[in-house]
Design a protein around this nucleic acid. Structure first.
Lengths: 135, 135
DNA sequence: CTATATGCAAATAGTTTGCACGGAT
DNA sequence: ATCCGTGCAAACTATTTGCATATAG
């Protein structure tokens, strides 16, 4: 789906500024606020920081984006997609997405604790295969 | 272990300010910066915010504390203990600790992706049994 | 045409730092 | 006596907001 359609679907106007932010998120997969500011300025030098903040907040609220929080890292933004976990390389910092089945885990905890489990969020600290091979 | 001993073990002086912060963390299990400020002020009205910041940063650096980041929540601090996951009740906001075995999950991802997995971080959004029962 | 989005500047919130003083070893 | 920790104020960084103008639909 094009970003224009995506924005329409979430009842947001398809402004050049929003398309530019989405372009960066699409291209890099995950991006911090600083990344977004830096990379959008290349194509769109007049895009203001307050517009970036407003649009990120708007798109988060409408659930078009999601925010990823990792200890010792700045928060990342990504275009919302199928629920997935993150593999963070401690060597090069790269973040990969990976979809895992958590049903078993969820069921297990639900049974053991008598709580209702709504969802599981999982991330992994890794050394990626590229970093492993260049050592 | 007493907090005095704990601090000594990490090569930090056992000041009343630090003990007060640890007291709050111990009592509440997890606490945000605001919680810490609020609850320490009860017993220690002169404790300054910059001392809280400095001490939290110091204790994080020395690995005596850990920081928990959750989407849509302020960051929480806790006294470091055995690796565990967090169960967050979407109804009452309470955070419970729970220790799960992630070895299987880790092995599975390691095999499937050819990365070296260092650790897994897991959290669950839940409705806790107390909230379930009072509906 | 109308409602919403934008840019800029100012306001507010969050965090860190310099410095003089005080307490522990 | 020396070192480290603290409180306070100031500095700095991050985020939000008000307002006049511009623009998408």
């Amino acid at each position: 789906m094009s970003h224009v359609e995506l924005l329409k679907q979430y009842e947001l106007k398809a402004t050049p500024q929003r398309l530019c932010v989405l372009g960066v998120l699409e291209k890099y997969g995950h991006a911090t606020l600083d990344d977004i500011e830096k990379y959008t300025k290349v194509k769109f030098p007049t895009l203001s920081l307050s517009t970036i903040y407003r649009n990120l907040n708007e798109m988060l609220k409408k659930d078009l984006l999601s925010e990823v929080k990792l200890v010792n890292k700045k928060d990342y933004f990504e275009i919302k997609k199928e629920k997935h976990s993150h593999l963070i390389c401690k060597e090069c910092g790269k973040i990969e997405d990976y979809t895992i089945q958590t049903d078993e885990l969820v069921e297990q905890i639900e049974t053991l604790t008598s709580n209702k489990i709504l969802s599981a969020t999982v991330s992994f600290d890794i050394i990626c295969k590229e970093c492993l091979s260049t050592k």
